[in-house]
Amino acid sequence: MPPADGTVTRRRGGKYGFAPYGFLLPGFAVYALFLLYPLGRSVQISLYDWDGLSLATFVGLANYVDVFTDAQLRAAFEHALVLIFFFAVLPLGLGLVLAAVLTRGQVRGLAFFRTIVFLPQVIAMVVVAVAWRQIYAPDGTLNTFLRWLGLESWTRTWLGDFTLTLPAVGLIGTWVCTGLVTVLLMAGMSRVPGELYEAATLDGAGAVRRFFAVTLPSVRAEIVVALTLTIIAALKTFDLIYVTTSGGPGSTTTVPSFEVYRRAFQLGEVGSATAVAVVLTVLIFVINVGVNRIGERER
């Protein structure tokens, strides 16, 4: 009789033999080939001073020390953490409100609205960046609209202002991610039994209290998924920065992914660039493990 866990192989003569986890080997081989090996190779390269062409020189952990001591690299990671607010936290707040209103409000054309809010997700980020660069231009849509309202003093060179450029770029991320978060939350809210809302209403709960007592606890899984996706998007963003600001003005919008590109392909510091990439990978992993742990604890 074959074992209950299904991990068996058929021998000659019709007899069964044990092959523990044998069915996982093909998948693990692909995983190791395309993820684990490149990751291990990246860690190896990060231990060398190498320009990508000549012989590499072993420097140990010097590249990692540089990541934590170089002011520009530290600033790049700080900028990435700021972008988490615009890519993840702000879209989550907006998405919760929009999803709750649309799900409980019986809005007509809900499917059409879902498509519209999700549309930024299917547009290439390069196209999004080019479009918003035109909006933020000195004679672009935003400044033209402000002048039309009589707010001439509010006009800015939005992508050239040392203070406002990073928030301006972050708001593009908010526009892109809000639709994804809203659709995810709407899917979760649509599965909440109506009886829970009826019971809360009979207990005297108003709309706000029903939201916090019924809706919010019911979509914790969707919130964790949304935060995971948007935090990854915030930390690994490159094309948006490259097209809109190229890390400028100065280095006010440089982020780790852009530093990887700049050091590897412009400065010829492949070892240093790989160290930045490895640290960024670890940071993404740690933050998302924390988000998932908090989500599991709250269930």
Rank of each mutant, 00 (worst) to 15 (best):
284 I>F: 01
56 A>I: 04
18 F>W: 13
97 V>M: 12
184 L>T: 05
171 L>G: 01
17 G>Q: 03
250 G>C: 07
270 V>A: 07
150 G>M: 04
216 L>K: 08
235 L>I: 02
294 I>F: 10
68 F>M: 06
87 F>D: 05
299 R>F: 12
254 T>F: 02
173 G>I: 07
157 T>I: 12
39 L>Q: 15
30 V>G: 10
5 D>E: 03
206 G>M: 07
53 L>S: 10
45 I>C: 11
175 W>Y: 14
179 G>Y: 08
281 T>N: 07
82 V>Q: 04
231 I>R: 02
176 V>F: 11
178 T>D: 02
75 A>N: 08
65 V>G: 13
5 D>F: 05
202 L>V: 15
80 A>I: 01
228 T>V: 03
46 S>F: 06
270 V>G: 04
143 N>S: 10
262 R>A: 15
3 P>W: 09
155 T>D: 01
282 V>F: 09
168 A>P: 00
214 V>E: 04
225 V>Q: 08
230 T>F: 04
91 P>D: 10
178 T>P: 06
111 A>W: 12
143 N>Y: 10
162 F>S: 11
181 V>Q: 08
203 D>S: 13
20 P>N: 02
208 V>H: 11
78 E>S: 08
81 L>V: 04
82 V>S: 10
89 V>F: 01
65 V>H: 12
29 A>E: 05
298 E>R: 02
148 W>M: 13
42 S>G: 15
278 V>R: 06
107 V>R: 12
189 M>D: 05
81 L>F: 08
146 L>K: 03
287 I>G: 10
40 G>I: 14
57 T>I: 02
54 S>R: 09
174 T>M: 12
10 R>P: 00
178 T>G: 04
106 Q>D: 08
31 Y>T: 00
108 R>S: 09
167 P>E: 15
84 I>E: 01
169 V>T: 07
260 V>G: 06
108 R>L: 13
138 P>I: 11
244 T>Y: 02
173 G>W: 04
257 S>L: 10
232 I>V: 14
157 T>R: 14
163 T>G: 13
75 A>V: 02
274 T>I: 06
5 D>M: 03
68 F>G: 05
131 A>M: 14
44 Q>E: 14
276 V>S: 12
238 F>A: 14
11 R>Y: 03
207 A>L: 00
34 F>V: 13
2 P>R: 14
233 A>F: 15
148 W>E: 12
229 L>A: 09
64 Y>N: 11
162 F>G: 05
36 L>I: 14
122 V>T: 15
228 T>D: 12
44 Q>G: 13
57 T>E: 09
85 F>L: 11
50 W>L: 04
248 G>I: 00
144 T>S: 15
217 P>S: 09
106 Q>T: 13
89 V>G: 02
43 V>A: 15
260 V>C: 10
231 I>D: 00
212 F>S: 04
249 P>D: 04
269 E>Q: 15
172 I>M: 09
33 L>Y: 04
266 Q>M: 06
154 W>D: 03
289 V>N: 11
24 L>I: 06
298 E>G: 07
249 P>V: 00
172 I>L: 05
265 F>R: 06
41 R>A: 15
155 T>A: 06
110 L>D: 13
201 T>G: 11
43 V>T: 14
291 V>C: 07
88 A>W: 04
281 T>V: 01
134 Q>S: 14
27 G>N: 10
267 L>K: 15
229 L>T: 10
224 V>Q: 01
240 L>E: 06
33 L>V: 09
211 F>T: 12
102 L>V: 13
296 E>L: 08
5 D>I: 03
272 S>G: 07
